[in-house]
């Protein structure tokens, strides 16, 4: 039987009256990213920081246990590893190491999220359905945030659980837990919105990647030049994204910073910039002609 001979059958179901329109976008985007070529390889690589920190946490655990006859090992360990014995410092190191991975993940997962829709003129597909530009942006944002948090917040919480298993509650405080949750949330949100903003600037994903790096390294160079010509005024380093992320780590994990400016300023810079980027992307999407 020819399939079309079946004819048209009206759908007997009921549309959800007040659906979360962003949710199908989140699910679809996550699925699309996961099905990308090399996604699984990249995600496996992204687990390396977690595995390294896990390994050193275990080394420190056994080195600190007198009953295991490894105490002498503690003396042999390099100073950098020994500092990981201090929980706040350990999570600060983990959090700031993840920034480099944010760049790779953001580019891999997020550079195409909006630019591909512009390229393929997919907006009528979205906006002929009952969703707003805000739903669209929220869907894309949560999808990217999911991957960034998957390799920052989730391993951070796992490390915390393992440290609890190794050392008990000794050295763990509410302040540390807040830091472990808030630091990746703020930094990943910032990176997601930055990536989405760059992604909304061009339909060409290669251009998106170039613009992304231009901003990243442009700001780094600017901060270096201004710090240099000001005779080493470290406050100018706050023009750089990575410095602000590192400073945010200093704020949440109470690790001493070499920069004169208070770390909370960087937290404000990231939050304010993230808000501005959200506004800019939302405006850009609203202005796209369907």
């Amino acid at each position: 039987m020819s399939i079309r001979e079946k004819g048209y059958h009206p759908w007997s179901g009921t549309l959800i009256a007040k659906p979360h329109h962003w949710f199908p976008i989140v699910r679809f985007s996550i699925k699309q990213i996961y099905q990308k070529r090399f996604a699984k390889v990249l995600f496996a690589i992204e687990l390396i920081p977690f595995l390294v920190f896990l390994f050193f946490s275990y080394i420190l655990y056994i080195a600190n246990r007198p009953d295991m006859a490894f105490v002498s090992l503690l003396k042999e360990l390099p100073a950098e590893v020994k500092t990981l014995d201090y929980f706040f410092h350990s999570f600060y190191c983990f959090g700031t190491t993840v920034f480099f991975h944010y760049i790779i993940l953001s580019l891999f997962c997020g550079s195409d999220l909006i630019s591909a829709d512009i390229r393929s003129n997919a907006f009528p597909l979205y906006f002929s359905k009952p969703l707003s530009p805000l739903d669209y942006l929220l869907g894309k944002f949560i999808a990217l945030l999911f991957f960034l948090l998957l390799f920052s917040l989730v391993p951070g919480l796992l490390l915390l659980l393992l440290k609890l298993a190794f050392s008990g509650f000794d050295g763990i405080s509410l302040r540390l837990i807040i830091g472990i949750v808030a630091f990746p949330l703020i930094t990943a949100s910032f990176m997601s919105l930055f990536t989405l903003w760059v992604s909304s600037l061009s339909s060409n994903s290669r251009w998106v990647k170039i613009i992304f790096f231009l901003f990243l390294f442009g700001l780094l160079s600017l901060s270096g030049i201004l710090t240099g010509i000001s005779g080493g005024d470290t406050r100018f380093m706050l023009f750089d994204i990575s410095t602000n992320i590192s400073q945010t780590g200093h704020f949440f994990f109470h690790v001493k910073s070499n920069i004169v400016a208070s770390p909370w300023i960087s937290v404000l810079i990231l939050v304010f910039t993230a808000g501005t980027l959200f506004y800019l992307v939302a405006r850009k999407i609203k202005r796209i002609e369907v």
Partner: peptide, 13 residues
């Protein structure tokens, strides 16, 4: 299915 879900259809439907 994606466009259906955007319109408010449950995913399995």
């Amino acid at each position: 299915a994606y466009t259906g879900a955007l319109a408010g259809m449950p995913w399995h439907e």
